[in-house]
Simulated assay, not measured.
Amino acid sequence: MTTPHKKPRKGELTANQKAENKEFSSKRIFIEHVIRLVKIFTIVRQRFPLNSRTYEQVILTICELVRLRIGALILPLS
């Protein structure tokens, strides 16, 4: 897990650190948009009384639908 550089107390970030933070935020926003797409489905946002195997299948199906929506490649399950 990576985190952005924090501005030091009474100081400034270097140009390199600012560039790294900008790159980090552009990757992070993509992930946050994908999470939003997954949470559109109500079953993901709420607790649902299914056994764990059925719930896993439902979540995987929703993730596949989101992948199709964003046009990503479908990765093989391992």
Rank of each mutant, 00 (worst) to 15 (best):
K18T: 09
A19S: 15
A19T: 11
A19R: 15
N21F: 14
N21D: 04
K22P: 07
K22F: 13
E23T: 14
E23M: 15
E23P: 11
E23A: 15
F24S: 02
S25R: 12
S26Y: 03
S26L: 09
K27R: 13
K27T: 00
I31L: 11
E32T: 00
E32S: 03
E32Q: 06
E32L: 09
H33A: 02
H33E: 00
V34N: 01
I35C: 13
I35A: 06
R36V: 00
L37C: 14
L37Q: 11
L37A: 13
V38M: 10
K39Y: 08
I40A: 05
I40E: 04
T42V: 08
T42C: 12
I43K: 07
V44S: 04
R45N: 10
R45P: 03
Q46I: 08
Q46T: 06
R47V: 07
F48P: 01
F48W: 12
F48K: 11
F48E: 05
F48R: 10
P49F: 13
P49C: 10
P49A: 13
P49I: 04
P49K: 11
P49N: 10
L50E: 04
L50C: 08
L50R: 02
N51G: 13
S52T: 06
S52G: 07
S52D: 12
R53P: 02
R53H: 10
T54W: 08
T54I: 10
Y55S: 15
Y55A: 15
E56I: 09
E56L: 15
Q57R: 14
Q57D: 05
Q57I: 03
V58P: 01
V58N: 01
I59D: 04
L60A: 12
I62G: 04
I62E: 01
I62W: 06
C63F: 15
C63S: 11
E64R: 15
R67K: 00
L68K: 01
L68H: 03
R69E: 07
I70T: 09
I70A: 10
I70C: 12
G71P: 11
G71D: 07
G71K: 03
A72G: 02
A72S: 10
I74G: 02
L75M: 14
L75W: 06
P76D: 02
P76Q: 05
P76F: 05
L77Y: 13
L77V: 14
